[in-house]
Simulated assay, not measured.
Amino acid sequence: MYQVMVVEDEQWIRSAVVKMVEQLGGAFEVVAEACNGEEALQTIYQVWPTIVITDIMMPIQDGLWLVREIAERQLPIITIILTGHNEFEYARQALRYHASDFLLKPILEEELSNALEKAKAQIPQFHNLRHYYLSIQQLFDKIVDYDAMALFKEQARIVNCILDATDLQENEKGVLLRTFSSKYNDLIQSMQPDFTWLPFSVGEEVSAHFLKLTEEWLQCYNALNNVEMRQIIRKVCDFLQAHYQEEHSVSDITQRFHISVSQFSLLFKKYKGQSFINYLNSLRIRQAKHMLVDGELKVYEVAEQVGFQSLPHFNRVFKQLTGQSPNEYRKWLNV
């Protein structure tokens, strides 16, 4: 199964593309949606889609920015561009960043199917790298849960796995280690703005470089005022409880509560045991269950009232969290 993410700020277009992909069935499954490039990049690091279908023109960060970020970070993801008649030059620029294809709006199902098949043919080039990227991401997902000794051991394990890998070319090892180093540097700098970046060079002593980064992270994290951070996370949760039906992105929340995105993402997961997106979805699905049991609203009306912008997205999240579709849930309760 190939995991697809759809990025489009116009909800009706996003829903239409999601529906097309799901109707194709077979090898493709929509696992996430986003309404701008910034939200998409944050979501990528949570769900790791195989293929990203993205619009060009979007608010905050557009599709060209997203495609460039995916290419420059050398993420193991194939991109497909959606474009309008007057955006052709942007699409050409996206192709420079290795976009697989671009589709002209309005999108035809046959053209989307062909583009996905073309993207699928390119996926084997990332087969070896994907496992290592996921290992790196899992370390950062859990980094606040490690004590110092466990973190040193896990970091060293990942580095040694990359260095000793027989299924990787030397240039691929360099890409992975640079990515690992960049993510560490980004994380530390987001928590400590005056931190001096520690660039990675393939010729240097690799173990010493990552040992230094781990030491820097531990010093930075231990210096945080954790009492203050707990209070911020508590205020965020109170806000979401009252406003779960509204559309929220991580960037919206961090601006409202004056905290960096990296700090927020790490600490939210530490104190709540799940990501911001999963927490918000859990709130929405909990409320949706009450509405479904009540029986007065149609499923699409429930989806709208709890904050989902598309019915397919609501159905997908509901089944992920409950093991049943909304209609199956109603039948199970004889509603």
Score class of each variant (00 low, 15 high):
S207N: 12
F180I: 07
V335W: 03
V4R: 03
Q138R: 03
S113V: 11
L116E: 09
Q169W: 06
A223H: 02
P106R: 07
S201T: 04
R73W: 03
R316L: 01
F257N: 11
E117S: 06
F152T: 01
N327V: 11
M149T: 02
I77C: 14
Q189M: 08
Y45L: 06
N315L: 13
I259L: 00
I123H: 10
A121D: 10
R284E: 15
W65Q: 12
T254M: 04
L112I: 09
N226L: 13
Q241W: 09
M229R: 15
E109F: 08
F195M: 06
A91H: 04
R92L: 12
S100L: 09
G84Y: 10
D147Q: 00
M57D: 02
Y133C: 09
R96C: 13
I143W: 00
V21N: 08
H98G: 13
L66K: 12
R157E: 14
S15E: 07
N86I: 12
R68D: 06
L82S: 02
E89S: 15
H258E: 05
L129C: 05
L211Q: 04
K118I: 05
I158W: 01
H98M: 12
V52G: 04
E247G: 11
D186M: 13
E247K: 06
K183E: 06
L177R: 08
N281E: 03
V302S: 09
V159F: 01
R14W: 02
T254Q: 01
E33N: 00
Y300Q: 07
M229P: 04
V202M: 02
K183F: 10
N185A: 11
Q255F: 03
D186P: 06
L211V: 11
F195C: 08
A34H: 07
L333K: 11
D62T: 11
D194K: 13
A94K: 03
F276V: 11
E172N: 09
I253D: 03
R284G: 04
A156F: 05
R96D: 14
A34E: 04
I81Y: 04
R14I: 00
R286N: 13
W65T: 14
R286V: 15
N315A: 12
V21G: 07
Q3D: 11
I162L: 04
L213C: 02
L297A: 04
S201N: 15
V144W: 04
K142H: 12
M57W: 00
K212G: 03
L139A: 01
A94N: 10
Y300C: 09
V30E: 02
I253V: 13
G203S: 08
N128G: 12
N327D: 15
F318C: 05
Y244H: 01
N36H: 07
Q46G: 07
V335R: 04
D147M: 01
D164A: 08
V4D: 03
I81S: 00
N327L: 13
A148S: 02
A223Q: 10
Y271H: 03
D62R: 15
M191S: 07
V261W: 01
S207M: 15
I77L: 03
D294H: 06
Q137N: 05
A32N: 13
E72M: 15
Y90M: 12
R96I: 15
Q61M: 12
A40D: 00
L283S: 10
L283R: 00
R284F: 08
Y244T: 08
I56V: 11
I233F: 12
Q137F: 00
S182Q: 11
H98S: 15
K298Q: 14
